[in-house]
Design a protein around this nucleic acid. Structure first.
Lengths: 145, 145
DNA sequence: GCACATATGTTATATTATAACAATTTATAT
DNA sequence: ATATAAATTGTTATAATATAACATATGTGC
């Protein structure tokens, strides 16, 4: 197992122990599969990979694990790709920002703690009660230009 | 036909005439269906509505129209809802910002011309060549709180 | 151990989107 | 006006993504 995967798993284990919630086998497998992917991975690719670790898993197994991992903030969904990435923030956050390379497919998370002022101003102006946000930037990463 | 739908259609007609591209019947129908919806509408709901205006339309008809309308900037896709809304900006833009009410489902577009500085800074820091962006804010609209 | 809550297994199906190829319509050049 | 190319549509089939529903099992607190 790659060191970064190991680290992510260890972190998740720790947080789950603290919060007294269960990082079960299928959840751990799914998290390690996502962590082991160099780019966002879709649910059915996760399923394919999972079938090498478990006996004949079905879609709900993957989607349930995804739901759990998202709820804990261990992974995020890249909406424009229908795919999932691990979160490397050390704190829970209600907003996410990603840079998606349209060439190689890799995604970098930009950790802003707060919604940028121009956007926040819009919510105030509209009296919109913000609960979460997602930003996806598309373009080319440094290596692909 | 509602006045706002009429207006959106007229604008689209005008722009297409200018650019010498064709706003064909199915495209016009799909645009008017999206414009007539009070909130983002999914492709298969568009299809259902379209079947009252055309003889037995199929998914590709809707998706092709959507693709065209998106390319012209007449509509946007709300990624977190798999649904479509008309764009009321009077200029083409490569970035979009939406406030999505999780209660009533209505969406308000916030027209920022530029990517907020904190995000732009991140792209520069990563040497990421930006081509487009999408921001989706979730929460409760003024009326639903 | 028992009751309850949580998590998983399993089957089926819903929802969203596209591929592939044929037919038609429109634009363009001669 | 007519051949040709380009754009658009029709049609069938299927891919890709996600969830409902219900049965079973497993862990937790008493």
């Amino acid at each position: 197992m790659k060191p970064n995967v190991k680290k992510i798993l260890a972190q998740a284990e720790h947080i789950c122990a603290q919060k007294d919630i269960r990082l079960t086998e299928s959840r751990r497998h799914v998290l390690s599969i996502i962590a082991g992917s160099s780019k966002p991975i879709g649910a059915y690719d996760i399923l394919k990979s999972l079938s090498q670790k478990m006996d004949n898993p079905k879609p709900p197994t993957v989607y349930r694990a995804i739901e759990f991992l998202q709820a804990q903030g261990f992974i995020h969904r890249i909406e424009s790709l229908n795919a999932y990435v691990t979160c490397d923030a050390h704190h829970h956050h209600t907003g996410s920002q990603f840079m998606v390379c349209d060439d190689c497919g890799k995604v970098t998370e930009a950790h802003l703690c707060d919604l940028p002022t121009p956007l926040l101003d819009k919510t105030k102006k509209e009296n919109f009660k913000l609960s979460s946000w997602n930003v996806e930037l598309h373009g080319l990463c440094a290596g692909c230009q």
